[in-house]
Every structure is written in C-alpha cells, then in structure tokens.
C-alpha cells in the first residue's frame, strides 16, 4: 500500500529534476549531470556488490570501454554520439562476458583484485590504440556533439546556445538513465530472479537447496551492470568531450567515489545510492575549496560507516524507524476470510 505514495513522489521528483535546465544555470546543469552519472554508476555497483556479493574494484573497465566505443563510433565510423552511447553499452556488456569467465573463477578478495587487474590491462591496451590518440587520448571532433540528434529541437524549445543545448540534452539523458535504472533495479529485485539473488546473499546453502543457481544469477547481474555502466561511460564522455586512457579507466573517479557513495548511503539497499549521492554532492559543495581534504573526509566517513553503521544512512534509518517506503519483499497474501 505504501508504494502508492512512493511512486507519485518519485514521479514528482523526476519532474522537478527535469525542469532544472529551464530555471537553473548552465553550470548547475553540468554539475547535476555528473551527479546523475555518479548515481547511475552507484546503482550498478550496489547491484553488484550489495546484492550479488561481487566486490568489483574494476568497474572503471566498463566506463572506459563505453567511452572509447562511443568515441570510436563517432570518429572512426562517423556515427551520431547518441548511437555511440548505445554501442558503448553493448560493447561493455560484450566485453564483460570473457571478463566474467576469468573473474568468476576467483573468490571474494581474489575477485576484487582480478577485476582491478583486468581494468588496468584495458587502460594500457587502449593506450595502444593509435587511431584514438594512444596514450595521450583525443577529443571529439568539433561540432560532433552539437550535431547530435535532439539538440536542434532543444535549441528551438529553450532558446539557448548550441553548447548549452548539448548540456541540456546529456542532462536529460542522464536523468532518464538514472530513473530507468532505479525503476529497473526495483522491478528486478522484486522479481523471481531478484529474490533468488537476495536469498543467495543471505544464505547461499539454503538458496541452492530451493533451486537457485547462484553462478548463473551473478553472471547475469555482472553482464547487465556492465551494460548500464558502459552506457553511463559513453554519456559521460560526450559531456567531457575528450578521452584518454588515464581518465577513461580512472580507479578514483569511476570506482572509488562510487564505492563511497554506496557505502555511505547504504550498501545492499535500493535507496542507498540515492542518499549517498546527495551526501557526496553536499560534501563536494562544502569542501570544494580544500581539494585533498575532501577525499580524506570521504574516506574517513566511509570507514566510520563500516565500523558503526554497516548498512549506511538508509539502513540505519530503516532499523531505527521500522518504516520502509520502498520494500523489496512482497507482503503476505491476504487470507481469504
């Protein structure tokens, strides 16, 4: 019953977010774009680590592959950047299959290091791709982003410059991606497969005994989150407009921040990443002038959360209040009276 309230609230929030470009400044739109992309990455990582128990330290692999595939589509094949984003997602998912065959042979901590090593291999290998600038990287051709589908109607609608219209376009796409990802996560986690996944996380032996195949489910989550992460990667690098191996496969930007966001918000909870990204944004605004202090504070908060409130802000809220506006379980069927 409570969902009846949650869904309209979610839609209302979405509508407000969608209206930001009409009232907010261009800088705000750009900032919120990055926050939304971080949210998409966080939702995906939370699905992996929080629900499937796959502690990956190598998600920058899929961000980088998504970004590079988008660049290749635009520069080498002259495609529209938006098609490039889709190709980025598909390529990331395709690459995740052989990576899974390797990484799934490794358990726990080995898995973390294995995924990280694979991401570093990709960073070094893409540095050898001379057509896309090798180690120093390359920029999107001038105007490629501005000729993107959808930019012209936005210009007509909002009466802004071409570059600003590109920002609005990527912002709306990021918002849509985040919303779809959130909704899809919710539906997936409440589905038969999602329940199986949570059962495996809570008690692998009992889950197997009722016929859940953990490896198949985890592999599915690995490939699906690679797809989502790859899409985000493509989108991020349209906005940035420039790609290099070190930026595309950055452990700090695409995995470390994401891990902190999820841990602070509440790992293994669905709203956790949303809360975490809000805290992250607030801290960023507060400590923007202090550079490295900001990272130290983030690290200390992450450690404190793990010590004192393992399920993060959202998990603490749930256990204190006992009120769950977004339940992942199903309520018991009403008994016939």
């Amino acid at each position: 019953m409570r969902q009846k309230l949650t869904i309209p609230l979610f839609l209302a929030l979405l509508a407000v977010m969608a209206l930001v470009p009409l009232i907010g400044s261009r800088a705000l739109v750009q900032e919120l774009f990055m926050v939304l992309c971080l949210l998409v990455l966080a939702l995906n990582w939370n699905m992996l680590a929080g629900f499937a128990g796959l502690m990956s330290v190598g998600q920058q692999l899929f961000v980088g592959v998504g970004g590079y595939a988008m660049f290749a589509a635009v520069i080498l094949w002259g495609m529209d950047p938006l098609a490039g984003v889709l190709i980025g997602g598909v390529t990331a998912a395709a690459i995740s299959v052989p990576v899974a065959f390797f990484a799934f042979r490794l358990n726990g901590a080995y898995f973390a290091i294995g995924t990280w090593a694979v991401a570093d291999i990709a960073r070094l290998a893409f540095g050898q791709w001379k057509a896309l600038g090798g180690g120093t990287g390359t920029s999107l051709p001038k105007g490629a982003a501005q000729d993107m589908a959808g930019v012209v109607p936005i210009r007509a609608l909002l009466d802004v410059s071409k570059a600003a219209a590109v920002d609005v376009m990527t912002y709306w796409l990021a918002l849509a991606l985040a919303a779809v990802m959130l909704a899809a996560s919710w539906v997936f986690l409440r589905s038969r497969m999602g329940l199986g996944l949570q059962a495996v996380r809570d008690n692998p032996v009992a889950a197997r005994s009722v016929g859940v195949d953990p490896t198949r489910l985890k592999a599915l989550v690995f490939v699906l989150t690679a797809f989502g992460t790859g899409l985000a990667g493509g989108l991020i690098f349209i906005q940035i407009g420039r790609i290099s191996p070190d930026a595309a496969f950055s452990l700090l930007d695409w995995t470390a921040f994401v891990i902190f966001v999820v841990v602070i918000g509440g790992i293994g909870t669905l709203p956790g990443p949303v809360i975490g990204v809000l805290v992250f944004y607030a801290l960023e605004q507060l400590l923007a002038d202090y550079g490295t202090v900001y990272l130290i504070v983030l690290g200390l908060i992450g450690i404190a959360v793990m010590l004192f409130a393992r399920r993060g802000l959202w998990g603490t809220f749930l256990s204190r209040s006992g009120f769950d506006p977004l339940p992942l379980g199903h309520s018991a069927p009403k008994s016939a009276t």
């Binding site: 128990g53 502690m55 330290v57 901590a109 891990i259 990272l295 690290g299 793990m306």
Partner: peptide, 21 residues
C-alpha cells in the same frame, strides 16, 4: 569480506591524500 575491503580501501584514500597534503 566486504567490510574489511571497504575499510582498507577508505584507509588507502585517506593515507594517499594525507601524504599529498
């Protein structure tokens, strides 16, 4: 295995940036 991984990961970021400062 998640908590020790996450705590040492946080520690890594803290040490790195403290040294940088």
């Amino acid at each position: 295995i998640l908590p020790p991984l996450l705590v040492t990961f946080g520690l890594s970021v803290v040490i790195q940036n403290a040294l940088l400062m």
